[in-house]
């Protein structure tokens, strides 16, 4: 069983963290991952930076640009991660945009992921139809779980379709928006969380976008299996540094 699938069976609400590889400093990647695991984080999304992150808000746009300016690229990330499984056992996913993977070579990329021990991929601009048309076989060949997104606007029929194509969890985007903190969750989000919970999907859901603190984490996980924090963590890294990661995690739960 894939590490993601085992983790999802644990009887707890999962806290997952996204960070951009190569930011704040080029060689922080392993330190951040180890510190997150030591702080009790359940799962990590390692962001592969892209020049044109069109689903992201200002914070991740900035961290992506900074990471690229620092010199981050796919091959370097794989080098940094080559021994990660000697010290880290929680599920690791790579999250990014599809073009850098296409240039790396999709099969080579998947193969590298398998060798390192990456468990899954989240590629917002590789939607279901394109994935199934050209890439599903490759992802499966190398044991990678592909995670799909749903939003408040996703129709019930399409959610069912995505549920059927998923093998880990469904990434539930909290609102119609790019990434980054909002002013908390309103009634619209609460209704949406309940509506999805009521669908009794076969894959658990993990909520992302707009989770920034204890309150939004607990609201998001009242019916979902877990939540992902990205922009708020990146801001904390920028202001408090890598040493303060345990403080951030304690502030959430």
């Amino acid at each position: 069983m894939n590490r993601i699938q085992s983790k999802l069976r644990e009887d707890k609400k999962l806290l997952s963290i996204y960070f951009t590889a190569g930011h704040p400093n080029l060689n922080d990647t392993v330190t951040i991952i180890e510190s997150l695991q030591a702080s009790g984080i359940d799962m990590i999304e390692i962001g592969l930076p892209f020049s044109d992150p069109l689903a992201d808000g200002p914070t991740i746009q900035k961290s992506s640009t900074a990471a690229l300016d620092n010199g981050m690229h796919s091959k370097l990330l794989f080098q940094q991660l080559k021994d990660i499984r000697k010290t880290v056992s929680i599920p690791l996913l790579i999250m990014g945009y599809f073009n850098p993977i296409l240039q790396f070579g999709v099969e080579d990329f998947c193969k590298q992921c398998q060798e390192i021990g990456i468990d899954g991929l989240i590629l917002p601009d590789l939607p279901l139809a394109e994935y199934q048309r050209d890439y599903e076989q490759l992802f499966k060949k190398y044991g990678l779980i592909n995670v799909f997104l749903i939003t408040p606007q996703t129709s019930e029929a399409r959610i069912r379709q995505i549920d059927a194509a998923s093998e880990g969890f469904i990434y539930m985007v909290s609102s119609a928006s790019t990434t980054g903190a909002k002013k908390g969750f309103g009634q619209v989000q609460k209704d949406y969380f309940q509506r999805i919970a009521g669908m009794k999907l076969s894959n658990p859901q993990i909520v992302g976008f707009g989770i920034s603190n204890k309150e939004t984490f607990s609201q998001a996980t009242s019916s979902a299996k877990g939540a992902i924090i990205g922009s708020a963590f990146i801001k904390h890294l920028e202001s408090e540094g890598v040493e303060a990661i345990p403080d951030f995690v304690r502030s959430i739960r």
Binding site: F98, P124, D125, P127, R133, I150, Q153
Partner: peptide, 11 residues
Amino acid sequence: GGAFIPEMLYP
């Protein structure tokens, strides 16, 4: 061609 768009743009 195709449509390589995030799910948020699908509808």
